[in-house]
Nucleic acid binder design. Structure first.
Length: 104
DNA sequence: TTTATGACCTGAG
DNA sequence: ACTCAGGCCATAA
C-alpha cells in the first residue's frame, strides 16, 4: 500500500473546506493540496469522489470558470448554492473564486 | 514500454 | 466563441 491515496485525501480535504457560494479551480485545488501540476488528477479525484464523502465537487470548475462538459448537472448544483453564472455559461470567477487567506 | 484517454491549462489561428 | 496543438500527470490496456 503506497501513499498515493494521500493525494485524493488532500484534494477532498481542500474541497470540503470551500465555503458555500464559493468556487475553486482544479489547478488551485491541486496546488493548495500541495500537488502543483496535478490539476488533471484533481479532476479525476473529484470525479471518483462519491457524494457520501461530503465533498462538494460541484464547487470545483476549470480555469475558465466553465463547468465539466461531461457533467451537466454541476451547473444546476452551483445555482442551488447561490453561484451566479455569466451569460456565456461560465461562473463569475472574479466574484466567486475562493481565497484561503481572505476566507470571506 | 508504448499508446490512448481524460470532470486540465495555455496559447495560437 | 470555436477548434487545434503542445504540455502536464496518472491510469488502463
Amino acid at each position: 500500500m503506497t501513499d498515493n491515496n494521500s493525494f485524493y485525501n488532500d484534494i477532498y480535504e481542500i474541497v470540503k473546506q470551500i465555503p458555500r457560494g464559493r468556487v475553486l479551480t482544479y489547478k488551485q485545488a491541486a496546488t493548495l493540496a500541495g500537488y502543483p501540476g496535478r490539476a488533471r488528477m484533481a479532476g479525476r479525484a473529484l470525479g471518483l469522489a462519491p457524494a457520501e464523502s461530503g465533498v462538494p465537487c460541484h464547487r470545483v470548475v476549470n480555469s475558465q470558470g466553465r463547468t465539466a462538459p461531461l457533467w451537466p448537472e454541476q451547473r444546476r448544483l452551483l445555482e442551488a448554492e447561490g453561484i451566479v453564472f455569466k451569460k456565456n455559461g461560465c461562473v463569475d470567477m472574479t466574484r466567486h473564486k475562493w481565497n484561503m487567506d481572505a476566507d470571506l
